[in-house]
Design a protein around this nucleic acid. Sequence first.
DNA 1: GTCTATAACCAGATAGAC
DNA 2: GTCTATCTGGTTATAGAC
Lengths: 209, 209
Amino acid sequence: MAAIDTASLFADVEPASSRRLLQAALDAFAARGYRATTTRDIARRAGLSPAGVYVHFGSKADLLGAISRVGHDTILRMSEQAIAQGEDPGDRLSRFVRTFAAWHAAHHGVARVIQYELRELTPAAFEEARERRRRFDEIVQAELRRGNETGVFAVADVAGTALAILSLCIDVARWYGTAPRRSPAAIGDLYADLVLRMVRSGGELDEDA
Amino acid sequence: MAAIDTASLFADVEPASSRRLLQAALDAFAARGYRATTTRDIARRAGLSPAGVYVHFGSKADLLGAISRVGHDTILRMSEQAIAQGEDPGDRLSRFVRTFAAWHAAHHGVARVIQYELRELTPAAFEEARERRRRFDEIVQAELRRGNETGVFAVADVAGTALAILSLCIDVARWYGTAPRRSPAAIGDLYADLVLRMVRSGGELDEDA
DNA sequence: GTCTATAACCAGATAGAC
DNA sequence: GTCTATCTGGTTATAGAC
């Protein structure tokens, strides 16, 4: 099972001031929201003067855009690696859900920013995010169709079920930290179990149940 | 099946200016977020001058608090009515999910405000919201336990599964309007089906599946 | 690259006339 | 209850010295 990446998202960003600014912006956006965060907050957290931000980034929105790009790329890459390790559709979907859900718990800070601040992105950055997000939908839909074909899944509404699966995992970022704490891995395991129950064959409900 | 309430949340608020301000604030908060909304936006949408807001409400936060109270009360009442109409745990949980999920689609504006602007509430309003929100958790957990007792459900992790069920439905408010449009009722039906698959007995997975 | 100082603007909220 | 006018303070971003 793939371990959850614990290194900072920005570990290889140079120079150090840019890296500290990205981390400071991420922390502030996650804690208080993009709009409620001031560039002074970010500068202070990064140990710079208010003007220091603009040496490294053109605007507050640029910082958000950079976080969005790195965040989306990271979870997309992790998801693709996780699913590639599975053999059959059940195994592959299960690995995807475990990784995707656990990431939203372990990295609920970044996750909150990339999932809930989309409307604050510039049009260009929004389009960039939208492209990557479509990939997640394609990944899950493809796996559901494959499972339907081999007969291990019985998913009547592939698009709706894929949306529900992603939605379930994404929302972890919202509640994580408020509900009684569970480890990201425990959430991943629980969710993989729940999702497999939702999709596999033999689970059709009677109409009058 | 209970029809989704389509009347305005604030239909019986008097005077008319207060009602218009609440609706204006709701529309603005839903569309652009609480922090990105100015009191001038709200006043203009309500057909008042910027100062007109403060005749009826003490602050922008008061408007949010009022929306949160009415929103939480509305969906809580609808949920309790829906579940009361069911006979057995499967039926009751199914009715709850249909109503709760469909409401988050049909009223994704209010839903977004009450689900994603919690941190903007005053401490008093936050506590009020938290009490009501605990009720949803109790409702679902109680039904899961009842189903376990009668043997129709086989839920190993009641707290975690209840959280997942609520989470799945709440997240409808986030994506509704971005994904290809489905009717709120269709979402309610799909989600009730998915949730029943998740919880009922006979659905346990092999460890090495 | 970093700082201090500041420009230019916009926010929430209030005063006081009508 | 509603308005116009305004107060007060905070916001993003820039200028220019070091």
